Measured scan of single mutants.
Amino acid sequence: MTVLPKDIPGDSLKVTVGTANGKPGDTVTVPVTFADVAKMKNVGTCNFYLGYDASLLEVVSVDAGPIVKNAAVNFSSSASNGTISFLFLDNTITDELITADGVFANIKFKLKSVTAKTTTPVTFKDGGAFGDGTMSKIASVTKTNGSVTIDP
């Protein structure tokens, strides 16, 4: 049996954390987006972790974005102690894959008090994996961190 590389060099799934701005007490939304989904033969499963400074940001909610089908079954998240974990699994293993680019999740943060303008990162942590529509590992994932700026 011969195994051929399935990824064209330079191609990767792009996962990007967005940015937001606000004043202390505001609730802002930071999107997590996927790009080049079709090039990577869709997404059938993924789990990953984001870190944030809990002294500056309070997670209000984490909701599935419009590219997630049947989110009540296929999407899960949790947030505590400065870490947000995400889990997606197409429970049907074929019919509810992520097949389009767009917003995977929206994180709502309540901004805490600061004395001066502060930009705090929302960054990928170690761990996690992504699988394509056949549940094979997506070897190349380009992750881009985001941030939230609090301006009193």
Rank of each mutant, 00 (worst) to 15 (best):
M1L: 10
T2I: 11
V3E: 14
V3I: 11
L4G: 10
L4A: 07
L4I: 08
L4Q: 11
P5V: 06
K6F: 13
D7M: 05
D7K: 11
D7W: 12
I8E: 13
P9F: 12
P9L: 11
P9I: 07
P9M: 13
G10F: 10
G10V: 10
G10T: 09
D11H: 13
D11T: 11
D11P: 11
S12F: 09
S12L: 12
L13P: 07
L13R: 08
L13K: 10
K14Y: 14
K14T: 11
V15R: 06
V15M: 07
V15A: 12
T16I: 14
T16P: 12
T16V: 11
T16Y: 07
T16C: 10
V17P: 10
G18L: 13
G18V: 09
G18Y: 12
G18F: 12
T19G: 14
T19Q: 12
T19N: 13
A20C: 13
A20S: 11
N21K: 11
N21C: 13
G22I: 08
G22Y: 08
G22D: 08
G22A: 10
K23L: 10
K23Y: 13
K23A: 12
G25H: 14
G25C: 14
D26G: 11
D26P: 10
T27E: 11
T27Y: 11
T29C: 09
T29G: 14
V30G: 08
V30H: 12
V30N: 09
P31Q: 11
P31C: 11
P31I: 09
V32A: 10
T33K: 13
T33D: 12
F34G: 08
F34K: 10
F34E: 03
A35T: 08
A35K: 13
A35Q: 14
D36Y: 09
V37M: 06
V37P: 12
V37I: 12
V37E: 04
A38K: 11
A38I: 13
A38H: 11
A38L: 13
A38E: 10
A38D: 08
K39N: 13
M40H: 07
M40Y: 09
K41A: 10
K41L: 13
K41D: 13
N42Y: 13
N42D: 14
V43G: 10
V43C: 10
V43Q: 08
V43R: 00
G44S: 03
G44C: 06
T45F: 01
T45M: 04
C46F: 07
C46K: 00
C46Q: 04
C46V: 00
C46E: 01
C46L: 13
N47I: 02
N47L: 01
N47V: 01
F48T: 07
F48L: 07
F48V: 04
F48H: 09
Y49K: 00
Y49L: 00
L50M: 09
L50G: 04
L50N: 09
L50F: 08
L50A: 08
L50P: 05
G51K: 13
G51V: 09
Y52G: 09
Y52M: 08
Y52P: 03
D53L: 09
D53A: 10
D53S: 11
A54I: 13
A54E: 14
A54H: 11
S55E: 11
L56Q: 10
L56S: 12
L57N: 11
L57D: 07
L57Y: 10
L57T: 12
L57P: 02
E58K: 10
E58N: 08
E58A: 10
E58S: 10
E58P: 03
E58C: 10
V60Q: 10
V60A: 10
V60P: 06
S61F: 11
S61I: 12
S61E: 11
V62Y: 08
V62K: 10
D63S: 14
D63L: 12
D63I: 13
A64C: 14
A64P: 10
A64I: 08
A64L: 00
G65Y: 08
G65I: 04
G65N: 07
G65K: 08
G65V: 04
P66K: 11
I67T: 10
V68R: 02
V68S: 10
V68E: 12
V68Q: 11
K69I: 13
N70W: 04
N70Q: 09
N70A: 08
A72E: 11
V73E: 14
V73N: 06
V73Q: 05
V73D: 12
N74C: 03
F75I: 02
F75S: 04
S76V: 04
S76R: 02
S76I: 02
S78W: 15
A79S: 15
A79E: 15
A79I: 15
S80G: 08
S80E: 01
N81H: 15
N81V: 15
N81Q: 15
G82L: 15
T83S: 14
T83L: 04
T83I: 15
I84S: 03
I84Y: 02
F86D: 01
F86A: 00
F86I: 07
F86L: 05
F86N: 05
L87Y: 01
L87V: 01
F88W: 02
F88L: 05
F88V: 01
L89S: 01
L89Q: 00
D90F: 02
D90I: 01
D90R: 02
T92L: 02
T92Q: 00
T92C: 01
I93F: 15
I93M: 03
I93K: 00
T94G: 03
T94Q: 01
T94A: 04
T94R: 02
D95H: 03
D95Q: 03
E96T: 01
E96V: 04
E96Q: 14
L97W: 15
L97D: 01
I98K: 05
I98D: 02
I98G: 01
I98M: 08
T99L: 05
T99F: 08
T99V: 07
A100D: 07
A100W: 07
D101K: 06
D101C: 06
D101F: 04
G102E: 04
G102V: 12
G102W: 03
G102R: 03
G102A: 03
F104A: 04
F104W: 05
F104T: 03
F104R: 00
A105H: 00
A105M: 00
N106V: 06
N106D: 05
N106M: 04
N106G: 03
I107M: 11
I107T: 03
I107P: 01
I107C: 01
I107E: 01
K108D: 00
K108V: 05
K108R: 06
K108N: 03
F109C: 03
F109I: 02
F109M: 05
F109N: 02
L111E: 01
L111G: 02
K112T: 04
K112D: 02
K112H: 04
K112Q: 06
S113H: 07
S113C: 05
S113M: 05
V114W: 10
V114R: 12
V114Y: 04
V114S: 07
T115G: 06
A116E: 07
A116K: 08
K117M: 06
K117H: 03
K117D: 05
K117Y: 03
T118F: 02
T118H: 06
T118K: 10
T119I: 11
T119H: 07
T119V: 02
T120V: 07
T120S: 07
T120P: 06
P121E: 05
P121F: 03
P121L: 07
P121M: 04
V122K: 00
V122M: 07
V122R: 00
V122C: 06
V122P: 04
V122G: 05
T123Y: 05
T123G: 07
F124K: 07
F124C: 03
F124P: 01
K125H: 03
K125N: 02
K125T: 02
D126C: 15
G127A: 03
G127S: 03
G127L: 02
G127D: 04
G128I: 00
A129F: 00
A129K: 01
F130K: 00
F130G: 00
F130D: 00
G131D: 03
G131M: 01
G131A: 02
D132M: 00
D132A: 05
G133S: 03
G133N: 04
G133D: 04
G133H: 04
T134R: 14
T134Q: 05
T134A: 05
M135C: 00
M135T: 02
S136N: 06
K137Q: 01
I138A: 04
A139L: 07
A139V: 06
A139R: 15
A139I: 04
A139P: 15
S140E: 01
S140H: 08
V141I: 05
V141S: 02
T142Y: 06
T142A: 08
T142M: 09
K143P: 01
K143C: 00
K143R: 06
K143I: 01
K143F: 01
T144C: 05
T144D: 02
T144K: 09
T144G: 07
T144E: 06
T144M: 04
N145S: 07
N145E: 05
N145T: 05
N145Y: 07
N145A: 05
N145V: 05
G146I: 04
G146L: 04
G146Q: 03
G146N: 06
S147I: 07
T149A: 14
T149M: 15
D151V: 15
P152N: 07
P152F: 15
